[in-house]
Amino acid sequence: MTNDRTTAMTDSSPAAPPAPSRPRTLLRLLPGLALTFAIAVVATILGTFVPVVGGPVFGIVIGVLLAAFLRPGTVLDSGTKFSSKRILQASIVVLGSGLSLTQVVSVGAASLPVMLGTLAVALLGGWLLGKALRVDGEIGTLISVGTGICGASAIAAVTAVIDAAESKVAYAIGTIFTFNVAAVLVYPTLGHLLGLSQHAFGLWAGTAINDTSSVVAAAYTYGSSAGAYGVVVKLTRTLMIIPISVVLALFVARRRSRALELAPDGGAAAADGGTTRRRVPWKKIVPLFIVGFLVASALDSVGAIPDSWHAPLSFAGVFMITMALSGIGLSTRLATLKSAGHRPLLLGGILFVLVGASSLLLQAATGTL
């Protein structure tokens, strides 16, 4: 009897809280999703009247203004973050349905000289300028890979490798986001002033603008051909996260091993067998939306997507991008940008200019301008 009571008491002890149900999760997303959808509708309409600016740019500007002056409450946060991340990734997959794998491979291969050149400028320039400006080493590394590869995604992957502090990550992301917005607003205008073709602008945007959302927004604002080309170039460039993260992981592991060897009495080496190894976070390094993009391209290559679907899918993809950028704008806090400080911002600004200029110079040198 005692055992039964004991069992009953044990069974009746407080259990772990149940996982939130799917309907409850959807309800939490709805307010933010509804607002980003409404902004995207307004931005798309404005974009038809001012095509040089385009719907995506209007979306992020409206979002930033609303966040600054109306300060929407936290009830919107879940939906706006979902828009800025998941809907953006889904938009890339949708846009992949209009590109065959042959196009993807040819564009990616053709862009390699410019892409690798700009990556070298970002990484080497970040290292040298970071030292000259006395920027913290980890912050400099994060800004360099963010500028050279793919903005916040690269920063997230590298953070998991080098184990950077949250405050340093915030500095880097604030810096990168500042120049993401600048690129979306400035690049299309500069492209028209320079008389760049759709091909040249797509290659410029794909190799010089750091974040995927900003590349897509700027390139599709310039034109649909520039957008399609820029997306493929950018996704090819995103794959550079893999070798860079592996190299950094090996560097960090080697540096920590040497530090443990030099520690008095072996330090923590005795408890760790003398070595410290850090696993490479493959799930973060290889984004799932790239796989989805390639699958969509493969379906288009084999004729599984009818030609009559291409125009509606293209419109849907651009609208989703506008919705995602609206969410990014709503999530923007000017105080976060200010907290980045002047030295990281200066480093990010110089790299922003250097990478953009080197992309154009490399295009001219390789005959792709």
Score class of each variant (00 low, 15 high):
residue 3 N to P: 14
residue 19 A to I: 01
residue 19 A to T: 01
residue 21 S to W: 10
residue 24 R to D: 09
residue 28 R to M: 00
residue 39 I to N: 07
residue 47 G to H: 03
residue 62 I to D: 08
residue 64 V to N: 12
residue 65 L to G: 09
residue 72 P to D: 12
residue 75 V to S: 15
residue 97 S to H: 07
residue 102 T to I: 02
residue 105 V to D: 01
residue 109 A to R: 00
residue 112 L to I: 00
residue 113 P to Y: 03
residue 115 M to Y: 10
residue 117 G to P: 10
residue 118 T to S: 12
residue 123 L to D: 09
residue 126 G to I: 04
residue 131 K to D: 13
residue 140 G to F: 01
residue 140 G to P: 02
residue 143 I to D: 03
residue 148 G to E: 03
residue 152 A to R: 06
residue 156 A to C: 03
residue 168 K to W: 06
residue 170 A to V: 04
residue 171 Y to G: 08
residue 176 I to L: 06
residue 181 V to K: 06
residue 185 L to T: 07
residue 188 P to D: 05
residue 195 G to V: 05
residue 200 A to F: 07
residue 207 T to I: 05
residue 212 T to R: 10
residue 213 S to I: 06
residue 228 A to D: 11
residue 230 G to W: 08
residue 240 M to L: 12
residue 249 A to Y: 04
residue 256 R to G: 09
residue 266 G to I: 07
residue 272 D to K: 06
residue 273 G to C: 03
residue 278 R to F: 07
residue 279 R to W: 06
residue 279 R to D: 06
residue 290 I to C: 15
residue 292 G to W: 13
residue 297 S to F: 10
residue 301 S to F: 14
residue 302 V to S: 04
residue 303 G to T: 02
residue 307 D to V: 02
residue 309 W to S: 00
residue 313 L to M: 00
residue 318 V to K: 02
residue 332 T to D: 15
residue 333 R to E: 15
residue 340 A to Q: 10
residue 340 A to K: 03
residue 340 A to E: 12
residue 343 R to N: 15
residue 344 P to T: 11
residue 348 G to N: 07
residue 349 G to T: 06
residue 352 F to W: 13
residue 353 V to I: 13
residue 356 G to L: 05
residue 357 A to Y: 14
residue 361 L to Y: 12
